[in-house]
Amino acid sequence: MEVRTIKVFTTVDNINLHTQVVDMSMTYGQQFGPTYLDGADVTKIKPHNSHEGKTFYVLPNDDTLRVEAFEYYHTTDPSFLGRYMSALNHTKKWKYPQVNGLTSIKWADNNCYLATALLTLQQIELKFNPPALQDAYYRARAGEAANFCALILAYCNKTVGELGDVRETMSYLFQHANLDSCKRVLNVVCKTCGQQQTTLKGVEAVMYMGTLSYEQFKKGVQIPCTCGKQATKYLVQQESPFVMMSAPPAQYELKHGTFTCASEYTGNYQCGHYKHITSKETLYCIDGALLTKSSEYKGPITDVFYKENSYTTTIK
């Protein structure tokens, strides 16, 4: 009895394709271990004539594949690729409408935090270190965002349907971005203890939790000093293409032309909904596939993004 075979390709990165001759009487799992086709788990399936010449994702289970996976995804987590594939199996079914010149995501599976993050990423200057993220990001900007969303979920250790947080998501993504040249110098002034300067680099240099107003941050924000008295913390120097200011959701007025974009969060910790506000020729609110415009805006804002380049204080 002759062994019926077909020729397929296996890959971990969709760049390096490895030619395989597979036995049609055995499952993919018996031949390769966990195997995925377009995100779908085909591990328990036997090869079919229609699979001839198709590319299958496999887990990096030998040295060659491990090197290829690390170079593309910059992670050695053995569960990463499987999590990416199972997320992709959902995100490829989502709709990605162009809204006001940006790629958004039609609401499904509690994905409003991903839509808000995706919209924000198209408006701030950011370059990702893992080629996987950078490639998928370019495709997302062009309207094909399924891979990018699935990668975000995998890097953030999230599953489809789980509630997510924009600030946490951005923080994970910033860790995989090139923020080497970003720098922030802060000064804390206390009447009792004097003053202390701190220099922050990388992710810490672009994120701040405690106030939404970048102007206020430049002037000074009140913080408790270690001595128990009130101290003032203010920005001395900022070198970065953008800054992200966050605070627990509270009524906040966004003035046209003073910011790049913002995240609105309605609801409580267990259950809520994100919308995205962007400042173009007027203010726009993007909620999944829905767009509304207004000249002014007041609502429960939790993150505001500002364009920056270089700032030095005039406070002496």
Rank of each mutant, 00 (worst) to 15 (best):
residue 4 R to I: 14
residue 4 R to E: 13
residue 5 T to A: 13
residue 6 I to H: 07
residue 7 K to R: 13
residue 8 V to T: 08
residue 8 V to H: 04
residue 8 V to S: 06
residue 9 F to L: 11
residue 11 T to W: 06
residue 11 T to Q: 06
residue 12 V to P: 07
residue 13 D to R: 03
residue 14 N to F: 08
residue 14 N to S: 13
residue 15 I to A: 06
residue 15 I to E: 08
residue 16 N to Y: 10
residue 17 L to E: 09
residue 17 L to S: 08
residue 18 H to N: 10
residue 18 H to D: 07
residue 19 T to F: 09
residue 19 T to D: 14
residue 21 V to T: 14
residue 21 V to K: 14
residue 21 V to G: 11
residue 21 V to F: 14
residue 22 V to A: 15
residue 23 D to W: 12
residue 24 M to F: 11
residue 24 M to T: 11
residue 26 M to H: 13
residue 26 M to G: 10
residue 26 M to D: 12
residue 27 T to G: 08
residue 28 Y to E: 00
residue 28 Y to H: 05
residue 28 Y to V: 04
residue 31 Q to K: 11
residue 32 F to C: 12
residue 32 F to V: 10
residue 33 G to Q: 03
residue 34 P to Q: 11
residue 34 P to A: 09
residue 34 P to V: 15
residue 35 T to W: 04
residue 38 D to K: 08
residue 39 G to F: 10
residue 40 A to C: 13
residue 41 D to Q: 13
residue 44 K to Y: 12
residue 44 K to H: 14
residue 44 K to L: 12
residue 45 I to Q: 15
residue 46 K to E: 12
residue 48 H to T: 15
residue 49 N to I: 13
residue 50 S to L: 13
residue 50 S to E: 15
residue 50 S to M: 14
residue 52 E to I: 12
residue 52 E to G: 12
residue 53 G to E: 13
residue 54 K to V: 12
residue 54 K to R: 13
residue 56 F to G: 06
residue 56 F to D: 05
residue 57 Y to C: 09
residue 57 Y to N: 08
residue 61 N to C: 15
residue 63 D to Y: 07
residue 64 T to N: 12
residue 64 T to S: 12
residue 65 L to T: 14
residue 66 R to S: 11
residue 67 V to E: 10
residue 67 V to I: 13
residue 68 E to S: 08
residue 70 F to L: 15
residue 71 E to S: 07
residue 71 E to Y: 07
residue 71 E to L: 08
residue 72 Y to R: 09
residue 72 Y to M: 09
residue 72 Y to I: 03
residue 72 Y to K: 08
residue 74 H to M: 09
residue 74 H to N: 08
residue 75 T to Y: 05
residue 75 T to L: 06
residue 78 P to A: 10
residue 79 S to D: 15
residue 79 S to I: 10
residue 80 F to Q: 05
residue 80 F to I: 03
residue 81 L to W: 08
residue 83 R to F: 05
residue 83 R to P: 04
residue 83 R to Y: 04
residue 83 R to G: 05
residue 83 R to K: 13
residue 84 Y to I: 06
residue 84 Y to H: 07
residue 85 M to F: 14
residue 86 S to F: 07
residue 86 S to M: 10
residue 86 S to A: 15
residue 87 A to N: 15
residue 88 L to T: 03
residue 88 L to H: 06
residue 89 N to E: 15
residue 89 N to S: 12
residue 90 H to W: 09
residue 90 H to C: 12
residue 90 H to T: 11
residue 91 T to E: 05
residue 91 T to W: 04
residue 91 T to N: 06
residue 91 T to Q: 03
residue 92 K to E: 03
residue 93 K to I: 07
residue 93 K to P: 06
residue 94 W to P: 05
residue 95 K to I: 14
residue 95 K to M: 11
residue 96 Y to T: 05
residue 97 P to W: 11
residue 98 Q to Y: 11
residue 99 V to W: 12
residue 100 N to L: 08
residue 100 N to Q: 14
residue 101 G to N: 08
residue 103 T to E: 02
residue 104 S to Q: 06
residue 104 S to L: 07
residue 105 I to N: 07
residue 105 I to C: 05
residue 105 I to L: 06
residue 105 I to E: 02
residue 105 I to R: 06
residue 105 I to D: 06
residue 106 K to E: 15
residue 106 K to S: 13
residue 106 K to I: 09
residue 107 W to H: 02
residue 108 A to P: 00
residue 109 D to I: 02
residue 109 D to F: 04
residue 112 C to V: 05
residue 113 Y to C: 05
residue 114 L to I: 12
residue 115 A to I: 06
residue 115 A to W: 02
residue 115 A to Q: 10
residue 116 T to A: 11
residue 117 A to C: 08
residue 118 L to N: 04
residue 118 L to E: 01
residue 118 L to Q: 06
residue 119 L to N: 02
residue 119 L to S: 05
residue 119 L to Q: 03
residue 121 L to F: 07
residue 123 Q to M: 05
residue 123 Q to L: 06
residue 123 Q to F: 03
residue 124 I to V: 07
residue 126 L to M: 08
residue 127 K to A: 11
residue 127 K to W: 06
residue 128 F to K: 03
residue 128 F to P: 06
residue 129 N to P: 04
residue 130 P to L: 04
residue 131 P to E: 02
residue 132 A to H: 04
residue 134 Q to C: 10
residue 135 D to Y: 08
residue 135 D to S: 09
residue 135 D to M: 09
residue 138 Y to R: 13
residue 138 Y to L: 14
residue 139 R to I: 08
residue 141 R to L: 10
residue 141 R to Q: 09
residue 142 A to G: 10
residue 144 E to V: 06
residue 145 A to K: 05
residue 146 A to C: 07
residue 148 F to M: 12
residue 149 C to D: 05
residue 149 C to R: 02
residue 149 C to Y: 05
residue 150 A to F: 03
residue 150 A to D: 02
residue 151 L to W: 02
residue 151 L to G: 02
residue 151 L to M: 07
residue 153 L to T: 02
residue 154 A to P: 04
residue 156 C to F: 02
residue 157 N to A: 05
residue 158 K to E: 03
residue 158 K to I: 06
residue 158 K to Y: 01
residue 159 T to I: 08
residue 159 T to C: 14
residue 159 T to Y: 12
residue 160 V to I: 09
residue 162 E to I: 02
residue 163 L to N: 05
residue 163 L to P: 14
residue 164 G to V: 06
residue 164 G to L: 00
residue 165 D to G: 08
residue 165 D to L: 02
residue 166 V to Q: 05
residue 167 R to Q: 00
residue 167 R to N: 05
residue 167 R to C: 03
residue 167 R to M: 00
residue 168 E to H: 13
residue 169 T to Q: 04
residue 169 T to G: 04
residue 169 T to K: 01
residue 170 M to R: 01
residue 171 S to V: 13
residue 173 L to K: 02
residue 174 F to I: 01
residue 174 F to M: 07
residue 174 F to W: 01
residue 176 H to K: 08
residue 177 A to G: 05
residue 177 A to H: 01
residue 178 N to V: 04
residue 178 N to W: 04
residue 179 L to Y: 01
residue 179 L to E: 05
residue 180 D to Y: 10
residue 181 S to Q: 14
residue 181 S to I: 05
residue 182 C to I: 02
residue 184 R to V: 02
residue 185 V to W: 02
residue 185 V to L: 06
residue 185 V to C: 02
residue 187 N to A: 11
residue 189 V to D: 14
residue 189 V to S: 10
residue 190 C to H: 04
residue 190 C to S: 01
residue 191 K to D: 10
residue 191 K to T: 13
residue 192 T to H: 11
residue 193 C to P: 04
residue 193 C to S: 03
residue 194 G to M: 00
residue 196 Q to V: 10
residue 197 Q to R: 11
residue 197 Q to Y: 08
residue 200 L to C: 11
residue 200 L to I: 09
residue 201 K to M: 10
residue 201 K to L: 11
residue 201 K to A: 08
residue 203 V to Q: 08
residue 203 V to N: 04
residue 203 V to W: 14
residue 204 E to N: 10
residue 205 A to F: 00
residue 205 A to C: 00
residue 205 A to N: 00
residue 206 V to R: 02
residue 207 M to T: 14
residue 207 M to I: 08
residue 207 M to C: 08
residue 209 M to V: 15
residue 209 M to L: 12
residue 211 T to F: 03
residue 212 L to R: 06
residue 213 S to H: 03
residue 213 S to N: 09
residue 215 E to D: 14
residue 215 E to L: 03
residue 215 E to C: 04
residue 216 Q to D: 14
residue 216 Q to Y: 05
residue 217 F to Q: 01
residue 219 K to G: 08
residue 219 K to S: 12
residue 219 K to F: 05
residue 223 I to N: 03
residue 223 I to C: 14
residue 224 P to K: 14
residue 224 P to N: 15
residue 225 C to A: 01
residue 225 C to E: 01
residue 226 T to A: 14
residue 226 T to R: 14
residue 227 C to V: 01
residue 227 C to Y: 02
residue 228 G to F: 02
residue 228 G to Y: 01
residue 229 K to D: 15
residue 230 Q to T: 14
residue 230 Q to E: 11
residue 231 A to D: 01
residue 231 A to T: 02
residue 231 A to M: 01
residue 232 T to R: 09
residue 232 T to M: 13
residue 233 K to I: 12
residue 234 Y to P: 00
residue 234 Y to T: 09
residue 235 L to F: 01
residue 237 Q to E: 11
residue 238 Q to V: 02
residue 240 S to K: 01
residue 241 P to F: 02
residue 242 F to H: 02
residue 243 V to Q: 01
residue 243 V to W: 03
residue 244 M to V: 00
residue 245 M to Q: 00
residue 245 M to Y: 00
residue 246 S to H: 01
residue 253 E to K: 06
residue 253 E to P: 08
residue 255 K to V: 15
residue 256 H to E: 11
residue 256 H to G: 12
residue 259 F to C: 00
residue 260 T to N: 08
residue 260 T to H: 08
residue 261 C to R: 00
residue 261 C to L: 02
residue 262 A to K: 00
residue 264 E to G: 07
residue 265 Y to V: 00
residue 265 Y to L: 01
residue 265 Y to C: 02
residue 266 T to H: 08
residue 266 T to K: 06
residue 266 T to P: 00
residue 267 G to C: 08
residue 268 N to G: 15
residue 268 N to A: 15
residue 271 C to N: 05
residue 271 C to F: 13
residue 274 Y to V: 00
residue 274 Y to M: 00
residue 276 H to M: 08
residue 276 H to P: 02
residue 276 H to A: 00
residue 277 I to H: 01
residue 279 S to G: 09
residue 279 S to A: 09
residue 280 K to D: 10
residue 280 K to R: 14
residue 283 L to F: 11
residue 286 I to R: 00
residue 286 I to D: 02
residue 287 D to Y: 00
residue 287 D to L: 00
residue 288 G to T: 05
residue 288 G to D: 04
residue 288 G to V: 01
residue 289 A to W: 07
residue 289 A to E: 15
residue 290 L to K: 13
residue 291 L to D: 06
residue 291 L to I: 13
residue 293 K to T: 14
residue 294 S to G: 10
residue 295 S to W: 10
residue 298 K to W: 13
residue 299 G to A: 08
residue 300 P to V: 14
residue 301 I to M: 00
residue 304 V to E: 00
residue 307 K to D: 09
residue 307 K to M: 13
residue 307 K to F: 09
residue 308 E to S: 09
residue 309 N to Y: 10
residue 310 S to E: 11
residue 310 S to F: 10
residue 310 S to M: 15
residue 310 S to D: 14
residue 312 T to W: 10
residue 314 T to A: 13
residue 315 I to K: 15
residue 315 I to D: 15
residue 315 I to A: 15
residue 316 K to T: 08
